[in-house]
Nucleic acid binder design. Structure first.
Lengths: 125, 125
DNA sequence: ATTTAATATGCGCCGGCAGGAATATGCCTC
DNA sequence: GAGGCATATTCCTGCCGGCGCATATTAAAT
């Protein structure tokens, strides 16, 4: 996996938002939909792109697909993810995403949507 | 200047190599040519792209154009450049570029090509 | 002024990616 | 096995970027 490919993944706004959210832990597609407020097709395609390039892993859990950052990461990937996390602190739209994600997580806690529980426990939260 | 634009600049191999070289100090186009071993048009266009996106500044010096990283950098840019420098340590083709650059710099020292002296002094080396 | 060296720009071609609409797949429930 | 939900894939279109070729610009030298 080339360094250029990492940047290929980062150079689209939607993918950037996705990866940034994944820094907070695994997520299923429906989470992405409600946080990013983008059409399902769009999100699904970008997730597919990220997977194809090795920046994301996925696992089926019943009806839902849970996406996460790869367990094993090259040094370059780790470095760049850390960098993204840094940059995310000041970038408006990324902050907004984090806020919406946090809200969703607290609102239903141990409650309604199964996929939320799933990925919350997967997170360890 | 958006974070995405930074990644837009980094996601091409030639541009990545250019920026990586600029981490070592200002350079003129002829340097890029001999280090990168790519056609002049290609290099020139990518430099133009980088300039248009604010990742590079240029200054004329006689016949030569000297390119450098911007004097004023956003926090995001600084972070990403540092990250690139990190990643450059292990990436083969970037190491090779650095080696070729170092060779050129020592070979003619204070010697023949004016542009070499120019950018060398601009570097402070 | 003409020539030469260094660099930039315009043009045309091609490939690939983003986006949306529609459709397909996989899994669960009843 | 039918229907319904979550997600993926296909097909299409438009656009932008990368590349090479040829040519233009700018400055220095003679």
């Amino acid at each position: 996996m080339d360094l250029v490919q990492i940047y290929d993944c980062l150079c689209d706004r939607t993918r950037l938002r996705i990866l940034h959210l994944l820094l907070e832990g695994p997520l299923c597609v429906c989470h992405f939909q409600s946080v990013l407020r983008e059409p399902q097709v769009k999100i699904s395609k970008h997730l597919s792109y990220l997977k194809r390039h090795g920046l994301v892993e996925s696992e089926r859990s019943g009806n839902w697909m849970i996406y996460r950052l790869p367990a094993q990461r090259t040094a370059q990937l780790s470095t760049n993810l850390a960098c993204l996390q840094d940059c995310g602190r000041e970038e408006r739209f990324l902050r907004a995403d984090r806020a919406r994600l946090a809200k969703i997580r607290t609102e239903f806690h141990g409650a309604i949507p199964a996929c939320v529980r799933k990925s919350a426990t997967a997170l360890g939260a």
